[in-house]
Design a protein around this nucleic acid. Structure first.
Lengths: 196, 196
DNA sequence: ACCTGAACACCGTTCAAGT
DNA sequence: ACCTGAACACCGTTCAAGT
């Protein structure tokens, strides 16, 4: 478990983020303490504060580190709707690979919408429409991932048992289906103002 | 701040949930400690364990307590699509009223889908379709609420400034617009199997 | 049944001191 | 520049003891 007793090379931020992610993945967020992380990298807890201002910065780093794992399939689809679908499906795959990190989902951390958002505007979306579509997809993907990793044993009480059983499983198909609906909906509503 | 020095009546769970919610609303989740809650209800921290098994149960109670605040407008719309929209808009209103609780969003806690889910099946939705629509709306609403309460100062980095500025504000209109798209999408796809 | 006092095993964080 | 030791001010939780 503990890796080394004496380090010959200084600790780096990247190392800390990586080890912290590994701990959280393996044993959950509660296991990720400064003391534990320090032990794991072969250093005293106090030493970590030479590299990080506080634990919050560590958690931010972990979330950013996780997002870097998002990998798009090759080759990219030519149809823009399929492309959007792939981007957010990839996002979901990464979130699903780190269920223990879901409580951190809503963290304020730099989200870079790649060039995807700009791309949408080049397709003829207004700035507003492009942003609203992008926000909606992020919100849905994150929300869906949160529930699909947390719902496992929750009690859905008074429903007919068939519905109750179905309600606790959150399928990839559902996620993709709704993503597609959102994309197509914004495609159809392009340029049309969102009058209530 | 502290309310009483000696209680004449025993502490109740409901009282604890209510006070805990008030603390979290007013000062954030970090301010909500067992010791603080105890002080606020006029008791020692250890006494709380006569009413709750642990802090997790307290947080569950707080989330349930919050959900009880969801209030649907009167009269209810007759059109079922408008009804669904109202249900989830009401959900969102309640979430938005408790931004400090958003980190608790993905908690495994009894979610009772009222009779709404059953209602959908009576409209001709298959069990699968009804559940998928319901899950999608919950996921979207919670995700959107998380981001709209947390995004405030996050750094959206390399975008054209107009897009960047727009990207940090999460509007109710956007939320409603996408909710409507999801509902209409499932309405149109009713009974049609979700083939990829 | 309900509450208290005191303790236990932790936390994150600071700071003077070492190299 | 990087690390350590020891401390500080907290946590959640347990348990014997009181009423």
């Amino acid at each position: 478990m503990v890796t080394s007793k004496k380090r010959e090379t200084p600790v780096t931020k990247e190392e800390l983020y990586e080890r912290a992610l590994a701990i959280a993945d393996a044993e959950g967020l509660e296991a990720l303490t400064m003391r534990r992380l320090a032990r794991e990298v072969g250093v005293e807890a106090a030493s970590l504060y030479h590299h990080l201002p506080n634990k919050d910065a560590l958690l931010d780093g972990v979330v950013i580190r996780m997002r870097q794992e998002i990998v798009l399939p090759e080759p990219l689809p030519e149809d823009w709707r399929e492309l959007m679908l792939e981007i957010f499906a990839a996002y979901r795959r990464t979130l699903a690979a780190h269920p223990n990190l879901m409580p951190l989902a809503g963290r304020r951390v730099e989200t870079d919408p790649d060039s995807g958002l700009v791309f949408l505007t080049q397709l003829g979306f207004s700035d507003d429409d492009a942003v609203e579509l992008w926000q909606s997809m992020i919100a849905f993907i994150v929300g869906f991932s949160v529930f699909s990793s947390a719902y496992s044993e929750s009690g859905v009480s008074d429903l007919p048992s068939a519905l109750a059983a179905r309600m606790v499983d959150w399928r990839d198909e559902t996620c993709l289906r709704t993503l597609r609906i959102i994309i197509d909906g914004y495609d159809a509503g392009r340029a049309a103002p969102a009058t209530s």
